[in-house]
Amino acid sequence: MAPKRSGPSTPTSSSANLKSLSSSSSNSPSTSAGSSLSGSAASNTDATVILNHVWNRYVQNTPQRTKLLDAFLGFLVAVGVVQFAYCVLAGNYPFNAFLSGFSATVGQFVLTTSLRMQTNKENEKEFSSVSDERAFADYVFGSLLLHFFCVNFIN
Protein backbone atom coordinates (compact mmCIF):
# COMPACT_ATOMS: atom_id res chain seq x y z
CA MET A 1 0.00 0.00 0.00
CA ALA A 2 2.53 2.50 1.15
CA PRO A 3 5.02 2.25 -1.72
CA LYS A 4 2.29 2.85 -4.29
CA ARG A 5 1.29 6.03 -2.67
CA SER A 6 4.78 7.22 -1.90
CA GLY A 7 6.08 5.94 -5.25
CA PRO A 8 4.96 8.76 -7.47
CA SER A 9 5.99 11.35 -4.95
CA THR A 10 9.65 10.29 -4.80
CA PRO A 11 10.75 10.99 -8.35
CA THR A 12 9.38 14.49 -8.22
CA SER A 13 11.04 15.28 -4.97
CA SER A 14 14.35 13.72 -5.92
CA SER A 15 14.38 15.29 -9.33
CA ALA A 16 13.67 18.62 -7.69
CA ASN A 17 16.61 18.01 -5.42
CA LEU A 18 18.77 16.88 -8.24
CA LYS A 19 18.24 19.85 -10.44
CA SER A 20 20.28 22.02 -8.19
CA LEU A 21 22.89 19.26 -7.90
CA SER A 22 23.13 18.64 -11.62
CA SER A 23 23.47 22.30 -12.43
CA SER A 24 26.49 22.51 -10.18
CA SER A 25 28.02 19.15 -11.08
CA SER A 26 27.48 19.30 -14.82
CA ASN A 27 29.75 22.27 -15.07
CA SER A 28 32.95 20.54 -14.07
CA PRO A 29 32.71 17.57 -16.47
CA SER A 30 32.03 19.90 -19.38
CA THR A 31 35.16 21.87 -18.64
CA SER A 32 37.24 18.70 -18.42
CA ALA A 33 35.67 17.45 -21.62
CA GLY A 34 36.61 20.65 -23.31
CA SER A 35 40.23 20.37 -22.32
CA SER A 36 40.44 16.78 -23.57
CA LEU A 37 38.76 17.80 -26.80
CA SER A 38 41.56 20.17 -27.63
CA GLY A 39 44.30 17.64 -26.78
CA SER A 40 43.20 14.23 -28.16
CA ALA A 41 41.42 12.41 -30.97
CA ALA A 42 37.76 12.61 -31.89
CA SER A 43 36.92 9.07 -30.64
CA ASN A 44 38.20 10.02 -27.25
CA THR A 45 35.94 13.03 -27.35
CA ASP A 46 33.04 10.76 -28.21
CA ALA A 47 33.76 8.57 -25.21
CA THR A 48 33.95 11.56 -22.96
CA VAL A 49 30.73 12.87 -24.37
CA ILE A 50 29.02 9.54 -23.85
CA LEU A 51 30.33 9.23 -20.32
CA ASN A 52 29.29 12.77 -19.65
CA HIS A 53 25.85 11.99 -20.94
CA VAL A 54 25.60 8.83 -18.84
CA TRP A 55 26.69 10.74 -15.77
CA ASN A 56 24.21 13.49 -16.37
CA ARG A 57 21.41 11.03 -16.93
CA TYR A 58 22.37 9.26 -13.71
CA VAL A 59 22.52 12.49 -11.78
CA GLN A 60 19.21 13.72 -13.10
CA ASN A 61 17.13 10.54 -13.06
CA THR A 62 18.31 8.67 -10.00
CA PRO A 63 16.37 9.10 -6.79
CA GLN A 64 18.19 10.52 -3.80
CA ARG A 65 18.11 7.29 -1.77
CA THR A 66 19.49 5.22 -4.64
CA LYS A 67 22.33 7.67 -4.98
CA LEU A 68 22.99 7.33 -1.28
CA LEU A 69 23.03 3.54 -1.75
CA ASP A 70 25.47 3.88 -4.63
CA ALA A 71 27.74 6.09 -2.61
CA PHE A 72 27.74 3.55 0.22
CA LEU A 73 28.42 0.73 -2.26
CA GLY A 74 31.37 2.65 -3.63
CA PHE A 75 32.68 3.15 -0.12
CA LEU A 76 32.36 -0.60 0.57
CA VAL A 77 34.24 -1.44 -2.63
CA ALA A 78 37.05 0.85 -1.57
CA VAL A 79 37.24 -0.69 1.91
CA GLY A 80 37.13 -4.19 0.42
CA VAL A 81 39.91 -3.41 -2.06
CA VAL A 82 42.11 -2.05 0.73
CA GLN A 83 41.62 -5.19 2.80
CA PHE A 84 42.27 -7.52 -0.09
CA ALA A 85 45.34 -5.60 -1.16
CA TYR A 86 46.66 -5.81 2.40
CA CYS A 87 46.10 -9.56 2.35
CA VAL A 88 48.00 -9.91 -0.92
CA LEU A 89 50.87 -7.71 0.24
CA ALA A 90 51.22 -8.66 3.91
CA GLY A 91 50.06 -12.26 3.87
CA ASN A 92 46.90 -13.84 5.17
CA TYR A 93 47.91 -14.44 8.79
CA PRO A 94 45.66 -14.48 10.79
CA PHE A 95 43.40 -15.93 8.18
CA ASN A 96 40.21 -15.81 10.23
CA ALA A 97 40.73 -12.05 10.67
CA PHE A 98 41.05 -11.63 6.92
CA LEU A 99 38.01 -13.79 6.32
CA SER A 100 35.83 -11.93 8.77
CA GLY A 101 37.08 -8.45 7.82
CA PHE A 102 36.76 -9.03 4.10
CA SER A 103 33.49 -10.91 4.33
CA ALA A 104 32.00 -8.17 6.52
CA THR A 105 32.61 -5.74 3.69
CA VAL A 106 31.54 -8.12 0.93
CA GLY A 107 28.48 -9.22 2.88
CA GLN A 108 27.53 -5.64 3.56
CA PHE A 109 27.92 -4.98 -0.17
CA VAL A 110 25.62 -7.88 -1.03
CA LEU A 111 23.00 -6.79 1.49
CA THR A 112 23.14 -3.20 0.26
CA THR A 113 22.78 -4.35 -3.34
CA SER A 114 19.72 -6.33 -2.31
CA LEU A 115 18.29 -3.27 -0.68
CA ARG A 116 19.00 -1.30 -3.84
CA MET A 117 17.21 -3.89 -5.95
CA GLN A 118 14.21 -3.95 -3.68
CA THR A 119 13.83 -0.20 -3.38
CA ASN A 120 14.59 0.66 -7.01
CA LYS A 121 11.49 2.02 -8.71
CA GLU A 122 12.36 0.22 -11.92
CA ASN A 123 12.03 -3.13 -10.13
CA GLU A 124 8.71 -2.27 -8.57
CA LYS A 125 6.89 -5.02 -10.44
CA GLU A 126 9.12 -7.80 -9.22
CA PHE A 127 9.09 -6.65 -5.60
CA SER A 128 5.50 -5.47 -5.44
CA SER A 129 4.95 -7.41 -2.22
CA VAL A 130 7.95 -5.80 -0.46
CA SER A 131 7.56 -2.28 0.67
CA ASP A 132 10.57 0.03 1.02
CA GLU A 133 10.17 0.06 4.78
CA ARG A 134 9.96 -3.70 4.91
CA ALA A 135 13.04 -3.99 2.70
CA PHE A 136 14.95 -1.56 4.89
CA ALA A 137 13.94 -3.38 8.07
CA ASP A 138 15.14 -6.66 6.56
CA TYR A 139 18.34 -4.95 5.55
CA VAL A 140 18.98 -3.62 9.06
CA PHE A 141 18.26 -7.02 10.59
CA GLY A 142 20.51 -8.81 8.10
CA SER A 143 23.32 -6.31 8.58
CA LEU A 144 23.23 -6.55 12.36
CA LEU A 145 23.37 -10.32 12.06
CA LEU A 146 26.34 -10.05 9.70
CA HIS A 147 28.20 -7.67 12.00
CA PHE A 148 27.57 -9.95 14.94
CA PHE A 149 28.97 -12.95 13.11
CA CYS A 150 31.99 -11.09 11.79
CA VAL A 151 32.94 -9.61 15.16
CA ASN A 152 32.51 -13.02 16.69
CA PHE A 153 34.56 -14.79 14.05
CA ILE A 154 37.50 -12.38 14.16
CA ASN A 155 37.84 -13.33 17.85
Partner: peptide, 13 residues
Protein backbone atom coordinates in the same frame (compact mmCIF):
# COMPACT_ATOMS: atom_id res chain seq x y z
CA UNK B 1 48.69 -8.34 11.44
CA UNK B 2 44.95 -8.49 12.07
CA UNK B 3 44.53 -4.81 12.81
CA UNK B 4 43.76 -3.92 9.18
CA UNK B 5 40.89 -6.36 9.08
CA UNK B 6 39.61 -5.34 12.50
CA UNK B 7 39.60 -1.81 11.12
CA UNK B 8 37.87 -3.19 8.01
CA UNK B 9 34.99 -4.54 10.09
CA UNK B 10 34.55 -1.42 12.17
CA UNK B 11 34.86 0.92 9.22
CA UNK B 12 32.16 -1.13 7.51
CA UNK B 13 29.99 -0.98 10.61
Amino acid sequence: GAWTWIAGIWVTV
